[in-house]
Amino acid sequence: MACGTCNCNSPEIENLFMPKEALITETKWMTKDTKHFVLKWADGSKVSHQPGQIVEASLFGFGEIPLGFATSPTQENSFELVIRQVGRVSTALCKLEAGDTMLIRAPLGKGFPLDELRGEKVMIIAGGLGIVPTRSLINYITDRRDEFKSFTLFYGARNPSELLFKEDLVKWRSSKDVHYFETVDGCCEEDNWKGNTGVITTLFKQAEVTPDTKVIICGPPIMYRFVMMELYKCNVPHENVYVDLERRMKCGVGKCGHCQINDKYVCIDGPVFKYSELDSKEEAL
């Protein structure tokens, strides 16, 4: 396509901001405000992302938002996104249904360091929406289970109705592939919740965490500090901890400056960072 501004016929110059079309094949409301999308690339290409990488999802006229891939690249022909209605773009995207097209720029950023995790004990601590991007790694590990040693997963939500991926939870609860622990901050009688109640750090009482474990944390900003205090008690060194951060990522390509923390841009240097890279960086956590 030639230049859209005039009739200059200049050759198409690659535009970082041009999204690709993805076809929505399935949707499902996971909670009253959070919707699950299964997509495939409209041009038929296979997925090519790493667990933990991000997308900029958009609709023209509404804008773009950053989201983490909710699926592992071991799932080759489709990928999944989870969108919570919180703003202009997410509200518009949540109106889309199967058969509609979503515009996507991806994969962006650096994901989980698979090379550093292979052959190791891995633990994932996910709070709230933090389960979404970490699911890309959870599925990767369970799909290639023998490449990893023990695998522990902590998942905490505000209340039972906020738990996402309920079908996965059923699997994880009984799976031999993952030591799965879950909690909710609070619940009411109608929830009929039999599990643990309390913030996510209360799960540390139930699981053994050895210092050689590689730990991945993803959750609301407040969660990191408290989880780090628990990991300190378990003697897990900062080099073994990875955090998946959320910031206001606008361009997704390391230019616009909104997600800058010190000299790092969350959208290209992250969103996954080694904790030891960040602990000297103010404003990071």
């Binding site: 006229g61 509404f62 703003g87 202009r88 509200t91 518009a92 109106k95």
Partner: peptide, 8 residues
């Protein structure tokens, strides 16, 4: 508003 988008 015509598009159901909260105005900026």
């Amino acid at each position: 508003l015509l598009h159901g988008k909260e105005p900026v």
